[in-house]
């Protein structure tokens, strides 16, 4: 029976994926009502959060009836992620989730999201900082690799497990999503 830290998720949990502009509290309420076992906020920029930007703060809104709920953070700076994790912990979610999967332009450009799959050492350091910064369980959501040719999820999973993550939701690495991300770095 899968557990994340103290959270017992039942026999075969169904998770609602974090989705920007979709998985907000109104939508999450419906998913919860219809049986989602674990839900996540939309992703929140660590840089925005440490500046207390309104957009990020609003996304920290979580409700008792949503539990268990994870707050998802993204960022490319270890210090910003560490501080953002503490800010997120203060609103008392059940876990903190790190986004290592997002291929969209504005995220990858900042060295965040899927970009970190190209620098596993940094990914490990960043994860460890977040794990040490908070008492809550830390999970990651990632994809199989940065590109079709560099699927390094096995190394990533082992090394992140070693620094204390509690779950890895592997998503797919489709060639073209990565092509698109690579094009961004041009």
């Amino acid at each position: 029976m899968p557990r994340i830290g103290p959270i017992d998720l039942g026999e075969f949990p169904l998770l609602l994926a974090p989705m920007e502009d979709v998985s907000d509290p109104p939508f999450r309420a419906l998913c919860k009502q219809h049986g989602a076992d674990l839900m996540f906020t939309e992703f929140i920029s660590s840089e925005g959060l440490i500046r207390k930007a309104a957009k990020g703060m609003k996304k920290l809104d979580i409700f008792e009836q949503e539990r268990p709920i994870g707050i998802q953070l993204f960022g490319g700076s270890e210090d910003a992620m560490e501080e953002a994790a503490r800010i997120a912990e203060a609103v008392r979610p059940d876990l903190i989730d790190i986004n290592y999967g997002c291929p969209v332009h504005k995220v990858v450009n900042k060295g965040a999201g899927a970009c970190l799959l190209q620098d596993v050492d940094k990914m490990v350091r960043l994860t460890e900082k977040v794990v040490k910064a908070v008492k809550l369980p830390v999970t990651v959501k990632t994809r199989l690799g940065w590109s079709e040719q560099t699927k390094n999820i096995m190394e990533v999973a082992e090394r992140l497990q070693d620094v204390g993550i509690k779950r890895s939701a592997s998503t797919d690495a489709r060639g073209h999503s990565c092509t698109r991300a690579l094009r961004i770095g041009r």
Binding site: P2, A17, A157, E158, Q161, A169, S170
Partner: peptide, 8 residues
């Protein structure tokens, strides 16, 4: 690997 792995 002993952490839970969720597919997506």
């Amino acid at each position: 690997i002993h952490i839970p792995i969720f597919g997506n």
